[in-house]
Design a protein around this nucleic acid. Structure first.
Lengths: 201, 201
DNA sequence: CAGAATTGTGATTCACAATTCACATTATAG
DNA sequence: CTATAATGTGAATTGTGAATCACAATTCTG
């Protein structure tokens, strides 16, 4: 009854992913070393071969989240050059990501952040602000090509952009899917366009 | 070294408020019976004279939150009859509330919800949907008097309304106030108006 | 004021989770 | 194939927090 040996790099990935999954299922407070180990198929103490402690695991999860968020941005940039279209695609992707991973709002929020060291808080802040910066950049480029009017500040628009999804993601998670994110996204997008676009239909 | 005796009703209020404060300071995971008791000035075991267990305390906190949210709605209704103005005032109040009480997003989010019984989740869902219903009602009345166009569904507009503040509140909390909620609210409100109002300036 | 009810206290139990450690097993270099 | 490093295991340690309980202090009632 011994797990197959696997080199640290792979195990670290498995552990990080398992931790994220576990948070999705049980929230941050349900994240235990034992729970992670069980999912990976090793014994709790074995986990310490690959991470120094629980905090290190959480840090890895944060890195994973940052990566997922920024990957979405990179992806939509590759799909089109039209800023408003980039935003629309990003909205869909972002909604999907939050819908699948309630861990993201959950982690980003509170517990893990304030329990751990103060650097933890800075780390989370960094993830969010970096992501926001990307969105701001898209908006700024829309303002340059004239498709987005300049009355609105990029920061404001970017935060509003997140606001289209965050509450929806919460509602969806909490209501056990009674609230449908996909249809909300479809409905809210035109409203967002009205509020930022120069195009008056 | 004994605390003055206080009747259960008052103690319950003190305890609930202390719990809310504690969550504001340390997040939901930092909420402990010992911590609450210390703030109230009694010994941990004494708390069980007034609440059957920790879950009951959390339920009381949830009730308090619901009350604060709905009070805001009642208040703005009293101030004006103009739907858009009601929304603007509510936005300001809501922003202030979330800014002061990071406990609200924190609690509403995850931990307490999923750790406890399944009814807990329903309770939180109830709070949010009740609050949303109030906002929807304001929006619907705006549609009736013609100030808000009917292209947008009340639910969508209501969720977007929350979206104006929620991410801002998070940013403010996380960034240690570097992100200023008040100015965000000022900037985002015109955008919201553009997206829902019939008035074309 | 006496006695009952209420509220407060400290010690204690219980469960649970993080971490460590000595030892076992497996992989891998030479 | 064997020595050595890397990985896995189970038991033990430690810490923490919720909850209980017998007893003490206090309020309140008549």
């Amino acid at each position: 009854m011994s797990a197959r040996k696997t080199d640290t790099e792979q195990r670290q990935e498995q552990i990080t992913q398992a931790a994220l999954d576990l948070i999705n299922d049980k929230g941050v407070s349900g994240l235990s070393i034992a729970g992670i180990a069980r999912r990976v198929g090793i014994v709790p103490s074995a986990l310490y071969r690959h991470f120094t402690n629980k905090d290190a695991v959480i840090d890895a999860v944060l890195d994973l989240i940052r990566q997922r968020l920024l990957d979405n941005v990179a992806h939509v940039r590759q799909q089109t050059d039209v800023p408003l279209e980039q935003l629309r695609l990003l909205l869909i992707r972002h909604a999907f990501l939050l819908d699948e991973n309630r861990a993201i709002p959950s982690v980003v929020f509170s517990e893990a952040v304030y329990t751990g060291a103060p650097e933890r808080k800075a780390r989370v802040t960094g993830i969010i602000t970096d992501y926001l910066k990307e969105i701001q950049a898209i908006i700024a480029s829309g303002q340059q090509d004239g498709s987005i009017h300049k009355k609105i500040e990029p920061v404001t628009a970017a935060v509003l952009f997140m606001g289209m999804i965050l509450p929806a993601a919460i509602l969806s998670n909490i209501s056990e899917g009674l609230f449908d994110i996909a249809s909300h996204v479809k409905n809210v997008w035109p409203a967002f366009v009205r509020s930022v676009s120069t195009r008056t239909e």
